[in-house]
């Protein structure tokens, strides 16, 4: 049986030499957490199953900084590395793969041009393409929306892009399905309502998406304790849980979270 994965996420500000890891609250206020390749090495030693790097500045001119971060990391970190932020062509994806990334994550560029998913999947395989979705609850139900029951009533989920700064009007659940049919091998599903709030994952959202797609779903946004991870694994089919703040600033390490989960019957790699 496949283990449930624990994935630390490094939000990278590449506007300074070598880059730095930061973390925002609800996509806004920013705190400094460390140096990307150093944190990646620490999380690897602690037992991370995979590491995600997101370039939050998402600018083409800074991609060289990201590739140098990945090159440096991949010399001593031997778990899958996923890289996202500002990748909008097969050529740009190639640069990142050549630096040592195993997967790329797409968000804005795939929403603007969905064929990009197929183009990269055909060249590098479906397993190398992760579709990242930033989803926001909307309680004004309109016709044609995939409605989900939540603790606050029925809602639908709207996709955001440009790092949460703009909304698309696109239904996140329909988009997840379509992206998989185009070749996305995994969905990184972030709840914008929960991100940085420490209230736990959006269970209705994660449950719905992980049931309708046949690829792994990575739950993201809102976890502040191993209990939140336990909850998402017990209540949904999520294959992995992604978190940042709990590992950057909290009292929990990747290893202690995994031990906690294992003691409670979750199949994790120790």
């Amino acid at each position: 049986m496949l283990a449930r994965r624990i994935i630390p996420c490094l939000d990278c500000d590449l506007g300074v030499p070598g880059g730095r890891v930061v973390k925002g609250i609800e996509f806004k206020q920013i705190r400094y957490a460390g140096i990307p390749w150093e944190l990646a090495g620490k999380y690897y030693e602690d037992g991370a199953d995979e590491i995600v790097f997101l370039d939050i500045t998402a600018s083409a001119e800074r991609r060289e900084t990201m590739t140098s971060v990945i090159k440096k990391t991949s010399r001593s970190v031997f778990v899958p590395l996923a890289v996202g932020g500002g990748i909008s062509s097969v050529e740009q994806a190639r640069e990142v793969f050549n630096a040592g990334a195993d997967k790329i994550t797409l968000n804005t560029s795939a929403l603007k041009r969905p064929e990009l998913i197929s183009e990269i999947a055909e060249k590098y395989g479906n397993q190398a393409v992760v579709l990242a979705i930033d989803a926001k609850r909307r309680f004004n139900i309109e016709e044609g929306r995939k409605v989900v029951q939540t603790e606050k009533g029925p809602c639908w989920f709207e996709c955001s892009y440009y790092g949460g700064r703009q909304f698309t009007g696109i239904d996140a659940i329909a988009w997840a399905k379509r992206a998989v049919s185009l070749g996305a091998g995994e969905i990184l599903l972030t709840s914008m309502d929960r991100d940085g709030t420490y209230e736990g994952f959006d269970i209705p959202l994660t449950d719905t998406v992980s049931k309708i797609v046949n690829v792994p779903v990575i739950a993201s946004g809102g976890s502040a304790s191993p209990d939140h991870m336990l909850e998402v694994f017990e209540k949904t089919n999520a294959s992995a849980a992604l978190a940042a703040s709990i590992f950057h600033f909290g009292e929990w390490t990747v290893g202690s979270v995994k031990s906690y989960l294992k003691e409670r019957g979750v199949n994790v790699r120790i």
């Binding site: 049986m1 496949l2 283990a3 994965r5 199953d49 479906n126 397993q127 091998g185 995994e186 046949n214 690829v215 792994p216 294959s239 992995a240 790699r269």
Partner: peptide, 10 residues
Amino acid sequence: VMIPQMGWNS
């Protein structure tokens, strides 16, 4: 089963 098998297995 989920195809591809992607992840950690024993």
